[in-house]
């Protein structure tokens, strides 16, 4: 039960990402539900949970796409770790935290993806990608993070990390 809720939210984010996000596309740019959830987990629960969520979510994307397996494990894993490292340095109830985290996480994640694609010989015009994909998607993710963070934060009240560094369901 310990991680069931968090895993459930992550799988739901994946399903929303793979099925629903295309209905929400603006100019061909889709919101990244998984990234927002990974950043949120990192900010709320620390780098271990951020990393685990990033690796699991990234693996789902990579296995669905069937190529460059490991690409999203790397990009989301790194974002999860960095969001998690900020966990004890931020005020979790600050309203600006989620949008800022969503924007920076999105830019970082997509930059890693572009770099790896370029490394493996894809013709990715970097500046064009920044203008047409990375920044618009980051803005979209920023808004989405602002909307979703509060909902996941509610679960944080029930899933506070205990002093041993693990997450437990709070019992009343």
């Amino acid at each position: 039960m310990r991680y069931t809720v968090l895993t459930g939210i992550l799988v739901l984010a994946y399903l929303l990402q793979s099925v629903v996000s295309s209905y929400l596309a603006i100019g061909g740019i889709t919101p990244d539900f998984l990234l927002v959830v990974v950043v949120t987990y990192g900010l709320l629960f620390g780098w271990e949970v951020g990393l685990s969520a990033g690796v699991f979510g990234g693996l789902l994307i990579d296995l669905t796409a069937g190529r460059f397996i490991g690409l999203h494990v790397l990009s989301l894993g790194v974002v999860g770790v960095f969001a998690g490292l900020a966990e004890d340095k931020v005020f979790k109830d600050n309203m600006l935290l989620a949008p800022a985290g969503g924007f920076m996480g999105s830019v970082a994640s997509q930059t890693i993806v572009v770099f790896c694609l370029w490394l493996f010989g894809w013709r990715v015009p970097i500046l064009g990608a920044l203008r047409t994909t990375i920044l618009p998607a980051a803005l979209y993710d920023m808004v989405l993070a602002g909307l979703l963070y509060g909902r996941i934060y509610r679960y944080y009240l029930y899933l506070r990390p205990d002093p041993r560094g693990t997450i437990v369901i709070r019992r009343h």
């Binding site: 669905t64 796409a65 190529r67």
Partner: peptide
Amino acid sequence: VISRTPDNWYRMVT
């Protein structure tokens, strides 16, 4: 079509 690749970089559908 039952799903799209959950990424802005690939253009694939299932």
